[in-house]
């Protein structure tokens, strides 16, 4: 029998205890608290110009995988509403609408996670019969068997949301009746709010929105609070840097090849503002949402954040 001195005992016991503790924290980090936010950048050396299909597919799938997979958000049998920005009668190259290839990847992920149905729709500005096909999203949805929904203006329902500024607003009921609504905006410049991102994208589930421009930050915050986003994805594969939100000139479009996903919509918008070259603290919508406690601006320190180069 080996002689155990006090010194040896203390030394050994602390080592073992430390090892156990260490192993436990590592395991819990993997299982219990997954990432809150992921930014996927294309290493792409050199960055391929066209097309975006492969890049968008890889970036989107990697980002969702790093967040814990789509199974984290979509239960089997769920109905999912993907809410891209398809407001304008513009082609994907003009970057006024969400990239159809990001939508393609998302539909695949949702269906693979066991979603019963994936619906896609937006309350467009130009007529939907023009902007849906032009954006390329209608084609992608039909190809994968997702349902493209033309919002019916006579079916919007007045709903009390009791926000700070917005008390009652017509919302498209089919959207909020879904199990999950995923906001998938494209990062764009916007004259009123400087940038238009995931929170402003919710302007496409409501009607009577024009007078919101008199106090956009508060109105957008109210709607975001009502929508209670669980996950949002930012398409920054092509971004519109000027003459937003409609664009039209290819000179204003910048190829960035970034897709970011987050459970915190405010953090996602803060990141979006940064890549467009603005300080998120000076963006009215982001600041207002942060002040009302909807999320974090300082995503690097306050959230479990990871940047992945694909």
């Amino acid at each position: 029998m080996r002689k155990l001195t006090r010194r040896k005992f203390l030394l050994e016991s602390t080592t073992i205890a430390g090892a156990i503790a260490l192993s436990k924290t590592e395991a819990s980090a993997q299982q219990n608290t997954p990432l809150d936010m992921v930014v996927c950048k294309w290493k792409g050396d050199p960055i391929p110009e066209e097309p975006t299909k492969e890049i968008a597919d890889k970036l989107t799938k990697k980002a969702i995988e790093a967040l814990g997979g789509m199974e984290r958000f979509v239960k089997r049998g769920d109905i999912v509403w993907i809410k891209p920005n398809i407001a304008w009668d513009r082609t994907p190259e003009q970057a006024a609408n969400t990239n159809p290839d990001v939508i393609r990847a998302l539909i695949e992920l949702c269906l693979n996670a066991g979603a019963k149905k994936v619906k896609i729709g937006d309350n467009t500005v130009n007529d939907a019969t023009k902007s849906y096909p032009r954006s390329g999203i209608e084609e992608v949805a039909k190809e994968l068997g997702a349902e493209i929904v033309y919002l019916d203006r006579s079916r919007f329902r007045e709903i009390d949301i009791n926000g700070e500024r917005v008390k009652k607003i017509p919302i498209y009921p089919e959207i909020i009746e879904c199990d999950l609504v995923i906001s998938v905006p494209v990062a764009k410049h916007h004259a009123a709010t400087t940038v238009t991102l995931a929170m402003k994208n919710y302007m496409g589930v409501i009607e009577n929105r024009r007078m919101f421009h008199q106090d956009l930050p508060t109105c957008i915050k109210d709607i975001t609070a009502y929508m209670k986003p669980k996950i949002s994805i930012l398409d920054a594969i092509r971004v519109l840097t000027a003459n937003g939100p409609q664009g039209g000139d290819l000179k204003d479009v910048k190829r960035m090849n970034i897709v970011s996903a987050s459970v915190d919509i405010v953090a996602l918008d803060a990141f979006g503002a940064e890549i467009l070259g603005y300080n998120p603290n000076q963006i009215g919508t982001v600041k207002k949402a942060y002040d009302s406690g909807l999320g974090q601006i300082d995503y690097k320190n306050k959230l479990k954040f990871q940047e992945i180069i694909v």
């Binding site: 500005v125 916007h190 004259a191 009123a192 024009r210 421009h213 008199q214 106090d215 956009l216 003459n243 939100p245 409609q246 664009g247 039209g248 000139d249 204003d252």
Partner: peptide
């Protein structure tokens, strides 16, 4: 016009102008 008469932001028209560069400027 709201920004002229009522002292609030608006610019919905600027957002909708389809030209690039826009014919409505701020």
């Amino acid at each position: 016009c709201i920004p002229y008469s009522y002292g609030r932001e608006c610019i919905v028209c600027e957002e909708h102008c389809p030209l690039s560069p826009k014919a409505i400027y701020l």
